[in-house]
Amino acid sequence: MGRQCTCRCCTPLTRLYMILGESRGYLESLLQNLLCSVFDGAGVDAIALVKTCVFDRAAEDLNALRRVAHGGLVTSYTLGAIMITSCDDVDEDAAKLGSIDTFTVSEEGLRCNLIMPHALARCIPRGYTALIAPRYRWEAKLLIAALAHAGYHRIHVVGEQVDANLVGLTSLYNIDVNVQTIDVAHHYYDIVDVVIDTNVLRRHSPPPREKLIEFRLDEPNKTLPCILAHWVSRALLNWESVFVDSARVQALALSLVGNRE
């Protein structure tokens, strides 16, 4: 990213939060800088560190953090799907989709959440019908949950890695999910309220820019600061009972990501 981590030195009273990923990639480094800056701006004596996890030890790593950390973020959906088995309590979205992205350590145990659908929903305009083009099934699940939270009732899903099993989410979120082929995607551009693309549609028939939202967590894009701002803001509220203005966090995230068009 071209920037050093803004985390300051710790004291014996400094609280530790972890960012867990499959590797120390772009998202993990970005979140570390963002969280440390938010902690500093909110007057919270805490730091964020990055830890890489492997699948066969993910649950053990999460249990080990009960002794040293106050909470953290999980950047991999697959890691979150493994770690959910170690949680003492999970929120509604985590239970429905079978993965976590945030955890809090307390005397009551390990409280785990899936905040990403809510963070995405805050970045999506209100509407009724959407077209989404995910690369992977887990992206489709997050987007369907987010659109349901944003008030959508019908979703058309296209993509090379998506299959009809996603229709099972219809009953979970009371939303109509239709799986379409990539060849017919452009026919839906005029009848949907929003198009969410993970770089699938761009390679075929690009959607109109006024309806387009990019969803990528592994590279800079114009939507990423919005998503991260709401994710981090809610995480801090869960961890420290401290409210931070998501607009200020978004401006900070934008300065770290860069204004990419």
Rank of each mutant, 00 (worst) to 15 (best):
R3G: 11
Q4K: 13
C7H: 02
C7E: 03
R8I: 14
R8K: 15
C10Y: 13
C10P: 14
T11I: 05
T11W: 04
P12C: 03
T14D: 00
R15C: 09
R15T: 11
R15W: 08
Y17P: 03
Y17T: 14
L20N: 06
L20G: 05
G21P: 01
R24Y: 09
G25A: 00
Y26I: 00
Y26G: 10
L27I: 07
E28G: 06
E28F: 01
L31Q: 00
L34M: 06
C36Y: 08
C36L: 02
S37C: 08
F39R: 07
D40C: 12
G43N: 08
L49S: 12
L49R: 13
K51L: 14
T52W: 00
V54A: 12
V54H: 14
F55C: 11
A59C: 12
E60C: 09
L62D: 04
A64N: 13
A64M: 12
G72Y: 06
G72I: 03
L79V: 02
G80L: 03
I84R: 05
I84Y: 00
I84G: 03
S86N: 06
C87S: 02
C87T: 06
D89R: 15
D91N: 11
A95C: 09
A95P: 07
K96T: 10
G98L: 08
G98R: 01
D101T: 09
T102P: 02
F103Q: 04
F103H: 09
F103V: 01
V105L: 03
S106T: 10
E108H: 14
L110S: 03
C112V: 04
N113T: 15
N113I: 08
L114E: 07
I115T: 04
I115R: 05
M116F: 09
L120C: 06
C123T: 11
I124W: 01
P125L: 09
R126I: 08
R126K: 14
G127F: 00
Y128S: 15
A130Y: 00
L131Q: 01
Y136V: 13
R137Y: 12
W138G: 08
A140F: 06
L142V: 10
L142Y: 07
A146W: 07
L147R: 06
L147T: 06
H149V: 10
G151T: 00
G151V: 05
R154H: 12
I155A: 04
I155M: 05
H156I: 12
V158R: 07
V158S: 02
E160P: 09
Q161I: 13
D163P: 02
D163I: 05
V167R: 15
L172P: 05
Y173N: 04
I175G: 01
V177T: 10
N178F: 14
Q180K: 14
Q180V: 11
T181C: 07
H187T: 10
Y188R: 05
Y188K: 03
Y188I: 04
Y189N: 02
D190Q: 12
I191E: 12
I191P: 07
D193E: 04
D193A: 09
V194P: 01
I196Q: 05
N199L: 13
P207W: 01
E210Q: 11
I213F: 07
R216W: 10
L217W: 01
P220E: 00
K222A: 10
T223G: 11
T223R: 12
C226W: 05
V232K: 04
S233H: 08
R234D: 10
N238H: 14
V244R: 01
D245P: 07
A247E: 15
V249E: 01
L252E: 02
V257H: 06
V257P: 03
G258W: 00
N259H: 15
R260A: 11
